[in-house]
Amino acid sequence: MTLHVQEWGAGDRVAVLIHGLGNSSDSWWRVGPALADNGYRVVAVDLPGHGKSEPLAAYGAEALASSVVASVPRNPALAIGHSLGGLVLAHAVAELRPGIAVYEDPAFVVSSDPVVAEGFRAQKAWGIDDLEREHPRWDDTSRRHKLDALTAWDPTIVDHLGAFTSAPVDAPVVPSVLVLADPSRLIPPPFADALAARGFVVDVVPDSGHVIHLDDHDGFLAALARHGVVPARG
């Protein structure tokens, strides 16, 4: 399956961006141009059933990863996956082979709790008031993009979440950085410590929510700069 992609920039280095559940490539509306300004050609996918990409009859982590690998250049300089996109990147990384993988508050283990699934499904009916309540630090553009993404999103993916294979993270395949929320509900400290012991670099953006790049865009870019992805700001 070939996915819809959105691109920014025309640099010699490629950056691949993978969004989270119920979002779209538009969620990178600030990160994409920022990376392009730093010499990247940025390729952001719409995962199956998200944005402008077609849905799947059956969803799974491996199927999502295969669709990403089929839709973006191999051996990019950088790949970033947020939340579910982090899980997808973990399944794709051995074949994609980026120079560096950045996992933004990744969902390395997906809950099989039906209450969690129904919570995600309920977001399909959210309006702007719900987004203002749930994401008070987002600006209006970010909320508008999220609302558009929820309108396009195929919520039947939540029926399959319980069968999603956990991330293969026994050891990093390529240089790998975890950029975590503060606190992170998906990668709590004991899990973060275990991943660090396996060779993953762990970074935390202080006082940030789950969607770090929308909660604290500057803090997210500063984390990328700490690991050589973009230059540090003077």
Rank of each mutant, 00 (worst) to 15 (best):
G199Q: 14
W29M: 10
L47K: 01
A65N: 04
V230L: 06
D193M: 09
N38R: 15
L84F: 04
P33N: 09
A225Y: 09
I80G: 03
R97V: 13
L64A: 03
A225I: 05
V169D: 02
L64R: 01
F220Q: 06
L21N: 00
P206H: 12
D139W: 07
G99E: 13
R198I: 10
A65R: 01
D193R: 15
P183H: 14
D154H: 03
P73T: 14
D130E: 15
P175N: 10
Q6T: 12
F120C: 04
E134Q: 10
G49F: 00
S67I: 00
W29A: 07
R133Y: 12
A34E: 07
D182A: 12
E7Y: 05
P231K: 09
L96C: 11
V45A: 11
V173W: 03
A163K: 13
R144W: 09
D130F: 09
V115L: 11
A222F: 11
E62K: 13
L224E: 07
P73I: 13
K146L: 09
E132C: 12
V158T: 06
R30I: 02
F108Q: 04
M1V: 04
P175A: 11
A196V: 03
K146A: 05
P73N: 14
S27I: 02
A122G: 10
I100M: 15
I128C: 02
G127V: 10
P188G: 07
E104F: 12
L224G: 06
V72L: 05
R133T: 12
S142P: 09
A58N: 10
H217F: 14
D207E: 10
L35Y: 06
E95F: 07
Q123G: 02
P189W: 02
Y40T: 08
L150H: 02
V204S: 04
R41F: 14
A79W: 01
V211N: 05
G20Q: 00
A107T: 03
